[in-house]
Amino acid sequence: MSSSPPTVLLTGASGVLGTALLAELPAHCRVTALIHRCPCPAADDQFPGDLTAPRLGMDRETYRALARRVDAIVHCAAVTDFTSGPEAAHATNEAGTRAVVEFATDAGATPYHVSTAFVARHDLTRSRLGRDTGEAGARPEDYLDSKRAGEEVVRSSGLPSVIIRPSIVIGDSRTGDISAFQGLHGILLMLLRGMLPLVPLPATSLIDFVPQDVVARTIAALIAEERREGEVWVTAGPAALRAEQVLDVVADTCAELGLSTDMPRIVGADMVDRLIRPVFLAGGLPARALRRFDDMLAMTALFADAATFPTSLGELPGGPPPLTAARLDAVLRHSILYLAETKRLGDAAVRPMPVEVPA
């Protein structure tokens, strides 16, 4: 980077990580947002663009002018919907990443590519395990294949680059606020509404999630340090809560909210496949409910007795410390309260004012 204040190009500025990152980037950085649909007033500059179009959707003159200014690129934009299909996932997560890398080459800029820790679990999807996917519309394998391909684009470019792998990203650690609800929020909402009679997951499976501000602080620290290479895992690692602990937090928060919701029974996927789904669910549930259950089967397969993620938290100067189980418990509670308040469930008055969560 140059000796003058660095200019950071941010993709996905209106998304979960983009909005969190805008609040955490070093004050001396000048942030330029590449926007597609949503404006980004928090950025210093913004340019309309499209990751799937030539020159990122810009005319030649604008593209060249921007390339002369940019020192680093934080690539957060991605298709994360498991139901989007392989074409849409690869168009943004692979081809879009290729366009960003080409721009980085033209700009002589360092790409900070946001991937996902779950690329390490691409072999755990139900289809790859040879399990029936039923009526599921969710196909994690499409998303994971596209993210792995995106990482390969970055690695094969020959550019000095940093690959960042967060686990599940949830809301702000102090407030639970988030710009858009993610997959885990959908499962939490079904729990709050009493719509899950069972959870097809071993009780001791680790549910690795990280608050959005921790991911944003990690990326900000990488830029401040001018890190130009490596792979950074932003995960809870060994501190991740077990599935049974997550349900305990949900149950306690439901009680606080005045919601009389029975927690589901935890069962193994083998029992679901051999007995529960073919005997009790198939033909006995409305099609929409069965599809929702099969979607949950598809998502929870990525956690069932999976190996613990590595974590880089605590290793980066100026970055956030490692997460602890106590902090994750509090972080999850804040996210549940925010979700309940937004969906008008229970007594919203119990939601506390934002507080610092002890490390």
Rank of each mutant, 00 (worst) to 15 (best):
M1I: 02
S2T: 15
S3C: 07
T7R: 04
V8G: 08
L10Q: 03
T11V: 12
T11F: 10
A13G: 12
A13S: 14
V16A: 09
L17E: 03
G18W: 01
L21T: 10
P26F: 00
V31H: 07
T32Q: 01
L34S: 02
L34G: 01
A42M: 10
A42C: 07
A43S: 13
Q46Y: 02
F47W: 15
P48D: 08
G49V: 14
L51D: 08
P54V: 14
R55T: 01
G57E: 12
D59H: 13
D59G: 12
R60F: 00
Y63I: 04
D71M: 02
A72R: 09
A72E: 11
A72N: 01
H75D: 04
C76P: 08
V79E: 06
G85Q: 03
P86G: 01
A88G: 00
A95R: 15
A95F: 06
T97R: 12
V101H: 07
P111E: 15
R121L: 11
T125M: 09
R126K: 04
S127F: 02
R128Q: 13
R128G: 10
G130H: 05
D132M: 06
E135A: 15
A149T: 04
A149W: 03
V154K: 15
S156I: 02
S157M: 09
G158Y: 03
L159G: 10
P160S: 11
V162C: 09
V162M: 10
I163S: 05
I163H: 06
I163W: 07
I170N: 07
I170C: 05
I170K: 01
R174P: 02
G176L: 10
S179H: 13
Q182D: 14
H185M: 12
G186V: 06
G186Y: 10
L188S: 12
L189Q: 15
M190K: 15
L191K: 10
L191Q: 06
L192D: 14
P197K: 13
A203K: 06
I207R: 01
D208R: 06
F209A: 11
P211M: 08
Q212W: 09
D213F: 01
R217T: 05
I219T: 07
L222A: 07
E225Q: 14
R228C: 10
E231M: 14
E231S: 13
V232I: 13
A243R: 01
V246F: 04
V249R: 10
V249M: 09
V250C: 11
A255C: 04
L259V: 09
L259R: 13
S260Q: 08
R265Y: 00
D270R: 15
V272A: 03
L275K: 00
V279A: 14
F280V: 09
L281P: 02
A282M: 09
A287V: 08
R288L: 04
R288M: 02
R288E: 12
R288A: 05
D294C: 05
M299H: 00
A301E: 07
F303Q: 10
A306S: 15
P310Q: 08
P310W: 13
T311P: 02
S312V: 12
G314P: 08
G319S: 09
P322M: 01
P322E: 05
A326C: 00
R327S: 14
L328W: 00
L332M: 05
H334Y: 01
H334D: 02
I336Q: 07
L337V: 03
L339N: 05
E341S: 15
K343Q: 11
R344H: 14
R344P: 06
R344V: 06
L345P: 15
D347L: 02
P352V: 00
V355S: 12
E356Y: 06
V357Y: 03
V357P: 00
P358G: 13
